[in-house]
Design a binder for these strands. Structure first.
Length: 420
DNA sequence: TCTGGGGTCCTAGGACCC
DNA sequence: TCTGGGGTCCTAGGACCC
């Protein structure tokens, strides 16, 4: 049986999220900024048409934005995460074989579909729109890589927002039009390399021999090539694997020089990362911390350090203590730091821990029960009100977010108000 | 003045062992 | 003076994705 994948992708996702809660934004240019109001990370079609680039620094396009009355939003990831979950649960009503690929994309398996796939995905698209207000595009093809391509075609050329790429002749026709750089899995470096060898479109890449690809590129690229030829190599991954690392990092709203403030930031990031760690029922065996000064300025200082956690743990205070020691180790006086982060790695399930001879383990201990109470309270009240004191209360280093919308769907005190 | 964050996978090279 | 070679594991760094 031939395989069939659908890729459903939300159009301009973060910008569309803002629009769901403010219909007056329809037809108007909208952009969403990254944390710290640094770069543009989402643009409505109208904003794209004005020439505002993806990932363009805000300060560079500010004049253009103000001159054209573009609505600007600071990133509101709580809101976007909640809307994403609603979109995904609507999609899941159509098939259990769904892979949530990113916050705004999901692959669906259409294997064994008896009727016209195009009509089917049109129905999905309408249902998502009805249930969530989110506009999506859907591409259908026999491999994930081709479904990605079909999705691009749907976005660019189809008034219906759906496209099915399944006939060989049609596939060949489109592959010639798709630039190598636009293929899923081919980045700038590989595209440049291929260009030097005269390969500029997907059709030419698909025609390369396996040997040549293996010799000059990677096994991953070979899979991409096979997928372009219609041979499915990337299966639908419908069970979400546990994360192998969990990190939290931020650019500061202001430059930070004091050791104490860096320690406090690291503690707060640990608090955030450790909560995710416990959510996937894991413990962490290695903690890393990094700090760096402004990467766009001269005299840059950046350093990182890590330490084993024995026994592996998910207890925030112990992880914070480790992180603070690491910050002290790499901190150098006289620099103005712009960014810091923590990464938890060597993750394993909290259930099969090895028994350490002299140390207490994590699960079932007083420490794990304290964390359960804290997480339970924070989850049920959705407040994050209980946290470890070392994370700081004022957080003077916290990021700038001058244009943030409300958390309409997750906070009672920020419900959407309608005045009649 | 102002330039994001969170992941995965692959590779190269060094350490180490036999 | 002569001074192996192969395998594995680990880490750092890069490429790529959204």
């Amino acid at each position: 049986m031939t395989k069939l994948f659908a890729l459903c992708d939300c159009n301009n996702f973060f910008a569309s999220c803002e629009r769901v809660f403010d219909p007056s934004l329809r037809g108007k240019p909208v952009v969403v900024l990254s944390n710290n109001d640094g770069c543009v990370i989402a643009r409505s079609n109208e904003a794209k048409a004005l020439g505002i680039g993806m990932a363009e620094p805000y300060f560079k396009c500010r004049d253009l934005i103000e001159h054209n009355g573009v609505k600007v939003y600071s990133a509101n990831f709580v809101l976007y995460g909640d809307l994403s979950a609603r979109v995904m649960s609507t999609l899941a009503q159509f098939t259990p074989e769904i892979e949530i690929y990113s916050i705004d994309e999901a692959f669906l398996s259409l294997d064994g579909l008896s009727h016209d796939p195009l009509a089917y995905v049109k129905g999905i698209r309408e249902q998502v729109r009805r249930d969530t207000g989110m506009p999506v595009s859907i591409g259908v093809a026999p491999t994930k890589t081709l479904a990605k391509a079909a999705n691009r075609i749907a976005k660019k050329y189809s008034s219906q927002g759906v496209y099915c790429l399944s006939q060989q002749q049609e596939i060949s026709h489109w592959l010639e039009k798709i630039e190598v750089r636009d293929i899923w899995g081919i980045g700038t470096e590989k595209a440049e390399f291929l260009k030097r060898h005269g390969i500029v479109n997907a059709s030419q890449l698909a025609a390369c021999t396996d040997e040549w690809i293996k010799k000059h590129l990677t096994i991953t690229t070979l899979k991409t090539v096979l997928e372009l030829r219609g041979i499915s190599c990337l299966p639908l991954e419908d069970v979400l694997p546990d994360k192998k690392s969990i990190g939290t990092s931020r650019t500061f709203g202001w430059q930070v020089s004091a050791l104490e403030e860096l320690e406090e930031a690291a503690a707060a990031y640990i608090g955030n990362a450790a909560e995710k760690l416990r959510e996937q029922k894991s413990v962490c065996g290695y903690v890393q911390v990094f700090i760096e000064t402004d990467r766009f300025k001269e005299g840059r200082y950046a350093n990182a350090a890590g330490i084993d956690m024995t026994p592996p743990t998910a207890y925030t205070p112990d992880l914070i203590a480790a992180a603070k020691r690491l910050v002290k180790k790499i901190y150098r006086e006289g620099y103005r730091y712009k960014k810091a982060g923590v990464i938890l790695t060597d993750l394993r399930p909290d259930s099969h821990e090895q028994v350490f001879l002299f140390d207490e383990t994590y699960k079932g201990t007083r420490k794990s029960r304290i964390m359960e109470v804290m997480d339970g309270f924070n989850r049920s009240t959705n407040s994050g009100k209980i946290f470890v004191a070392g994370e700081g209360v004022k957080q003077p280093w916290d990021m700038k977010q001058a244009h943030k919308s409300m958390r309409f769907t997750t906070r009672w005190d920020e419900l959407l108000e309608i005045r009649i």
